[in-house]
Simulated scan of single mutants.
Amino acid sequence: MSIIEKLNKDFESRVRLGIMSVLVVNGWVDFLEMKEHLGVTDGNLASHITALETKKYIEVKKEFVGKKTKTSYKVTRTGKDAFVQHINALGRLLK
């Protein structure tokens, strides 16, 4: 298998790469904080979050703070492993 074949298509989007990067180095991150970090729209962030959640790369937690819903995200073990493999493949590609 070539190095380029080891890159994970699920992380080709810059938004997904950003989401995973933020989550790998943090614990739980809420929607507004993630949106600020990445500078994306609500809809754009939500669609990429859904794609990553479908792949079981991230965990989603919804809770009430007062009367408002707060949605937070955390990387799963599966997600972290897949992301680290992707980053390692990028590193090998750059060498």
Rank of each mutant, 00 (worst) to 15 (best):
residue 1 M to I: 15
residue 2 S to P: 08
residue 2 S to M: 15
residue 3 I to W: 08
residue 3 I to T: 12
residue 4 I to H: 13
residue 4 I to K: 14
residue 4 I to P: 06
residue 6 K to R: 12
residue 6 K to P: 01
residue 7 L to W: 04
residue 9 K to L: 09
residue 9 K to Y: 10
residue 9 K to T: 04
residue 9 K to W: 05
residue 10 D to S: 10
residue 12 E to C: 15
residue 13 S to D: 02
residue 13 S to G: 05
residue 14 R to L: 15
residue 15 V to G: 03
residue 15 V to R: 00
residue 16 R to M: 02
residue 17 L to K: 04
residue 17 L to F: 12
residue 18 G to I: 05
residue 18 G to R: 04
residue 19 I to A: 00
residue 19 I to S: 00
residue 19 I to T: 00
residue 20 M to E: 02
residue 21 S to I: 07
residue 21 S to N: 09
residue 21 S to L: 06
residue 24 V to E: 09
residue 24 V to C: 15
residue 24 V to L: 13
residue 24 V to Q: 14
residue 24 V to D: 12
residue 25 V to Q: 09
residue 26 N to K: 02
residue 27 G to T: 14
residue 27 G to I: 10
residue 27 G to N: 11
residue 27 G to Q: 14
residue 27 G to W: 11
residue 28 W to I: 06
residue 28 W to H: 08
residue 29 V to Q: 02
residue 30 D to Q: 05
residue 33 E to V: 11
residue 33 E to S: 12
residue 34 M to H: 01
residue 34 M to P: 01
residue 34 M to V: 06
residue 34 M to L: 15
residue 36 E to L: 10
residue 37 H to T: 10
residue 37 H to F: 07
residue 37 H to C: 09
residue 38 L to G: 14
residue 38 L to C: 07
residue 39 G to M: 03
residue 39 G to R: 03
residue 39 G to P: 04
residue 39 G to E: 03
residue 40 V to D: 04
residue 40 V to H: 04
residue 41 T to E: 14
residue 41 T to N: 13
residue 41 T to H: 06
residue 41 T to L: 06
residue 42 D to R: 11
residue 42 D to F: 09
residue 43 G to D: 12
residue 45 L to V: 03
residue 48 H to S: 03
residue 49 I to F: 03
residue 49 I to P: 00
residue 53 E to M: 01
residue 53 E to F: 03
residue 53 E to C: 01
residue 54 T to N: 13
residue 54 T to K: 15
residue 54 T to M: 13
residue 54 T to V: 14
residue 55 K to P: 06
residue 56 K to M: 14
residue 57 Y to T: 01
residue 58 I to A: 04
residue 59 E to H: 10
residue 62 K to C: 15
residue 62 K to M: 08
residue 62 K to L: 14
residue 64 F to T: 08
residue 65 V to T: 13
residue 65 V to R: 10
residue 65 V to K: 12
residue 65 V to I: 15
residue 65 V to S: 12
residue 66 G to Y: 08
residue 68 K to T: 14
residue 68 K to P: 09
residue 69 T to F: 11
residue 70 K to C: 07
residue 70 K to Q: 06
residue 70 K to H: 02
residue 71 T to C: 02
residue 71 T to V: 10
residue 71 T to S: 08
residue 71 T to I: 06
residue 72 S to L: 03
residue 73 Y to V: 02
residue 73 Y to C: 00
residue 73 Y to I: 03
residue 74 K to H: 12
residue 74 K to I: 15
residue 74 K to W: 11
residue 75 V to M: 08
residue 76 T to K: 00
residue 77 R to I: 13
residue 78 T to P: 04
residue 78 T to G: 04
residue 78 T to C: 08
residue 79 G to R: 00
residue 79 G to V: 06
residue 80 K to I: 11
residue 81 D to M: 02
residue 82 A to N: 00
residue 82 A to G: 02
residue 83 F to M: 03
residue 83 F to I: 01
residue 83 F to H: 00
residue 84 V to L: 10
residue 84 V to G: 08
residue 85 Q to A: 10
residue 86 H to Y: 10
residue 87 I to N: 01
residue 88 N to D: 13
residue 88 N to S: 15
residue 89 A to G: 05
residue 89 A to Y: 02
residue 90 L to Y: 05
residue 90 L to N: 03
residue 90 L to K: 07
residue 90 L to D: 01
residue 91 G to I: 02
residue 92 R to P: 06
residue 93 L to W: 08
residue 93 L to T: 04
residue 94 L to R: 07
residue 95 K to L: 07
